[in-house]
């Protein structure tokens, strides 16, 4: 895993061109690298440094500041189980424990088949839907342990095509023509957020 591939270099240069200072494109390019490899490889950081004309150390400084940039390979699916207060009260810790048992890994670990990486996280801003988790930063709400097992089974069997592989992000491509988007819906097209919809009175 490595430097940005040719297609992504083209994309990178396009992204860079949106900023008056090349350096400003650093974070979008880190996203791009993470999308390419599922994580940000050292080689990719060096490549980005060349592209935006800073030192690799500066790229590393920025990259390592953000938890969501992974600097080592992670699973195709990154499962973040919330253990903060609301979730904890409603069974978040048990859910995490169950996830550890089911996947056979501790938080921070990756399954041998490279499918899943487990993390425990602090509040992911869905307290009303506790206990919750994220798969590649897509929320799953009010999970029982059975729900969790079903989720894992679905992910394994490819039924969750709505969740792209780890690293795929929509925002990198905000200026990218529609035909080159990663197939993610624009936030405006998302419709009513789930946590909102479930609390809304049935439409009359």
């Amino acid at each position: 895993m490595s430097r940005l591939n040719a297609a992504n270099v083209t994309l990178a240069n396009e992204i860079i061109s949106h900023y008056p200072k090349k350096k400003s494109a650093l974070i979008p390019l880190l996203h791009l690298a993470q999308e390419q490899d599922g994580y940000v490889a050292d080689d990719a950081m060096e490549h980005i440094a060349e592209l935006v004309e800073v030192t690799p150390a500066e790229v590393l400084g920025t990259c390592s500041f953000y938890e969501m940039f992974k600097r080592h390979p992670v699973g195709t699916y990154m499962i973040n189980v919330c253990t903060n207060i609301s979730c904890q009260l409603l069974g978040g810790e048990e859910l995490l424990h169950h996830a550890e048992q089911t996947l056979g890994i501790r938080p921070g670990g990756t399954t041998d088949d490279g499918m899943f990486t487990l993390e425990d996280v602090e509040c992911i801003a869905a307290c009303t839907e506790a206990p919750c988790l994220q798969v590649n930063y897509r929320h799953e709400y009010r999970l029982s342990t059975d729900d969790f097992d079903r989720l894992v089974a679905d992910l394994r069997s490819g039924k969750r095509s709505d969740i792209p592989a780890h690293g795929t992000l929509g925002t990198v491509r905000q200026h990218i023509p529609a035909d080159r988007r990663a197939g993610i819906k624009h936030p405006d097209d998302e419709g009513t957020p789930a946590w909102f919809a479930s609390r809304q009175p049935a439409e009359s």
């Binding site: 800073v54 030192t55 150390a57 500066e58 590393l60 400084g61 390592s64 500041f65 938890e67």
Partner: peptide, 8 residues
Amino acid sequence: PLIHFVDR
């Protein structure tokens, strides 16, 4: 700038 703060 070959040294930098790393991590958080």
